[in-house]
Design a protein around this nucleic acid. Structure first.
Length: 755
DNA sequence: CTTGGATGGATCA
DNA sequence: TTGATCCAT
């Protein structure tokens, strides 16, 4: 029963996660490649035009959608529905669909996204999760200090679940903030203390995140020409859920307090991971259909129908909690090439089998080769998969083989051997050319990549931080790490319709456990919001980087700065991280170190580093790269090393002056607003007060300029305006009633920057 | 028969 | 670790 509760708790609502999803990505790619298509209704189809009904549709743009074309239509039907529809076919190479241009475009996008945070995980060719927690915190701190203000245009194209327009939501947040300063009453007060701050800051953080995501989407558009939509919430699952609510080229955030309402009409199947058999089973077993209905069940009841892990996950998710971390991953962990041979296309003879093995193997060779140039790695393993039709039913098999050389014939031979060896009856006895059972699917999957640049050292570490990989400990343990009781008692706020269970029993227990277990987290306790801490963290990261560069083995600080390190299993052997001193399970140390590295690099450094990699790796002539690979890698290694050295040196030079004491040691801080000395633990609260004041000031100041802006939402609420501009600038000290009215009146320019 | 194929990730025994 | 299976885009 050893957890670090405080860390876990903070991760329930503290994180800000965005899911970026490209709008009808394949269509956008095709439009970019063939600009004549722009503005026209188009669909993208997988194969030749000889398919049933004119072929399927894998993507359609919004023009086509507006014309009534549906994804479920066949090509013919779509063409009938929309006669001037443009049919774009994905190219076919070696008899199979060639998706390389979409992969390439997706990689471009990911490269841009990655510059905003190291905590980016590609979820598919056109989707990526971003953990924006740090960026949001930084901006919130800036805002609080008056260095930054949201303007209306920052929230362009933004929607908030449960609100008609974003202005309505902003108004709500405004009222809440101003109210909180004057009024002791707070709708988060019945939460456990640990959650209250997170809860109160949720709305403003989501808004800030929306402004950041707008910037991200604008950058993606500028750098790649592609448009995307986004979902913004406190965890991946929710971000994903709301992403599709407003499309295209829009973004949707999910306020914490809207989750229950949102769940009421949300079919369970829509949740990622519940769209298949498992979700169906849950729905049937519990006889429910919507997410909100999950709330009725205890964890034990849920667990009757699934394993512990899933029951916890479901139980938490029903309460808006999903602890899965955004695991940084920039490149895929495997590459697969496959082809189906449905029905009469099933492979029935050895010659045909051989032919297709070669075709697909060529694909493998090309992809692996390309990957080697891009990522300087090579797979160690290849899995050969095939499906036979035996007695009219499909039987799938796969076998693993060492990947010793990226060679077409070698791959084919291995595959042929594998198929022969693992087929009880390979050939028909009377016909040595005919397969006994037809083959309906062939596939290769290479994985277990090995970095080609030698050999440990800082280079390797850097590379890993870019290429890698997974952070399994975070992903896996985060789910099981939520203690049942803590969850059960911390979610009452989501049950805004009452009926929540009493929570008192838990609190004491929680506190006890917290204290018992809180051996090494004292310094970072409850400060994760603080701008000062953020600075301290940054400073510490600088120091950490220096440590890595100068004496990697040296153990220094004993703080654990990263909010992603929120879980420490107790029973496995642990060792101290050489960077942060935190005790980490031995087998997870590499991952832990990677996380440090990912965090330590700022965007510029990362892009610079990547560009250098690209430069040194980019072949002069993209064609015929095969036989050069060996020698080229060697020469590159040298170049690259110097590049890295340069990079590191520069990094050192541009590092901020080392501060001998990090802000973590500071107990008090001078308020930048009023000059008062405030205990650091109270600083944020204190600054909140100033924020509210400022907002009020802005409100008044921009009142007149507001009238220039004339949008629908303003027109709508125009009648609510009044002319009480009489208050002085210090009116922030006035009563609730007054501030509320002001906020209502002037909501659209509330966040206007003053500069 | 028919949103099916290609692809990638994750889980579990 | 491997092989089968599930899930998602």
């Amino acid at each position: 029963m050893m957890w670090t509760p405080q860390k876990m708790i903070n991760n329930k609502y503290d994180r800000i996660i965005a899911l970026i999803d490209m709008d009808c990505f394949y269509c956008q790619v095709e439009e970019q490649l063939n600009p004549e298509l722009k503005g026209k209704p188009i669909i993208v189809q997988p194969l030749q035009y000889d398919d049933y009904g004119g072929g399927g549709i894998i993507a359609l743009n919004y023009v086509a959608k507006a014309r009534g074309v549906k994804r479920s239509m066949r090509g013919d039907e779509a063409k009938t529905q929309c006669p001037d529809l443009e049919l774009v076919r994905v190219p076919v190479i070696r008899g199979k669909a060639d998706l390389s241009k979409y992969r390439k475009a997706g990689k471009q996008v990911a490269t841009v996204l990655q510059t905003f945070t190291p905590l980016m995980a590609r979820a598919s060719v056109d989707e990526a999760y971003l953990d924006l927690t740090e960026r949001v915190q930084t901006r919130l701190a800036d805002m609080t200090k008056g260095k930054y203000a949201l303007s209306k245009s920052d929230l362009k194209c933004t929607f908030a679940v449960g609100y008609e327009c974003i202005d309505a939501y902003v108004q709500f947040v405004t009222n809440k903030v101003t109210k909180a300063t004057d009024d002791a009453e707070d709708d988060s007060e019945h939460l456990p203390e640990e959650d209250q701050e997170s809860f109160r800051k949720s709305d403003i953080k989501l808004l800030i995140a929306a402004s950041i995501v707008n910037e991200i989407r604008a950058e993606v558009k500028e750098q790649t020409g592609f448009e995307c939509s986004a979902g913004i919430a406190h965890n991946k699952t929710l971000a994903k859920l709301v992403c599709g609510l407003n499309k295209p080229n829009k973004q949707t955030l999910l306020p914490l307090k809207q989750i229950t309402d949102f769940y009421r009409t949300l079919p369970i199947k829509k949740v990622q991971g519940l769209g298949g058999k498992f979700g169906e089973k849950i729905c049937e077993d519990l006889n429910i259909q919507y997410m909100a209905e999950l709330l009725k069940f205890t964890r034990e009841e849920i667990q009757k129908h699934c394993d512990e892990r899933n029951s916890k996950w479901l139980y938490n998710l029903a309460r808006g909690i999903d602890m899965e971390a955004v695991t940084p991953r920039l490149v895929s962990k495997s590459i697969s090439c496959s082809k189906m041979f449905p029905r009469q296309n099933a492979i029935a003879d050895v010659q045909t089998l051989n032919h297709w093995l070669h075709e697909i193997a060529k694909d493998v060779v090309d992809r692996v080769d390309e990957d080697e140039f891009e990522n300087n790695r090579r797979p160690k393993q290849i899995v050969i998969s095939f499906t036979q039709s035996i007695n009219n039913s499909d039987v799938s098999s796969s076998r693993t083989v060492n990947f010793v050389a990226n060679n077409e014939n070698k791959i084919v031979n291995d595959a042929f051997e594998v198929i022969k060896r693992n087929t009880t009856k390979f050939l028909k006895p009377d016909d040595p050319n005919a397969l006994f059972n037809p083959i309906k699917y062939l596939g290769f999957n290479v994985s277990k990549f090995e970095s080609l640049d030698s050999k440990g050292g800082i280079e390797e570490l850097f590379r890993r931080s870019f290429q890698k990989k997974e952070n399994q400990s975070i992903t896996e343990t985060s789910n099981v790490s939520i203690e049942d009781d803590s969850v059960a008692n911390n979610i009452c706020i989501l049950n805004e319709n009452g009926n929540e269970e009493p929570q008192n029993s838990f609190l004491s227990k929680y506190n006890v456990e917290f204290k018992d277990d809180d051996t090494d987290t004292e310094n970072s306790e409850s400060d994760s919001e603080s701008g000062a801490l953020a600075e301290a963290t940054h400073q510490m990261n600088q120091n950490l980087l220096r440590n890595v560069l100068e004496s990697p083995r040296l153990s220094t600080s004993s703080t654990n700065p990263e909010y992603i390190d929120y879980y420490v299993p107790s029973e496995q052997p642990k060792v101290a991280c050489s960077k942060c001193g935190k005790m980490v399970v031995e087998t997870e140390m590499q991952v832990h170190s990677d996380a440090h590295l990912a965090f330590e690099l700022n965007e510029k450094q990362r892009t610079e580093f990547q560009n250098q990699l690209k430069r040194t790796h980019a072949p002069k002539t993209p064609i015929k790269k095969k036989q050069k690979s060996e020698t080229k890698i060697l020469s590159n290694k040298k170049k690259e090393k110097t590049s890295i050295e340069k990079f590191l040196v520069r990094k050192r030079e541009t590092s901020p002056e080392p501060s001998t004491s990090t802000a973590i040691d500071v107990e008090v801080e001078k308020c930048c607003e009023c000059g008062k000395t405030i205990p650091i633990t109270d600083l944020f609260e204190h600054l909140d007060f100033h924020t509210a004041k400022k907002l009020q000031d802005e409100l008044m100041k921009s009142e007149t300029t507001t009238n220039r802006m004339n949008n629908n939402s303003m027109k709508k609420s125009k009648n609510n305006y009044n002319n009480s501009l009489s208050s002085s600038k210090n009116k922030n000290n006035t009563k609730n009633k007054n501030t509320k009215n002001t906020a209502v009146r002037n909501i659209t320019t509330f966040f206007q920057s003053t500069e």
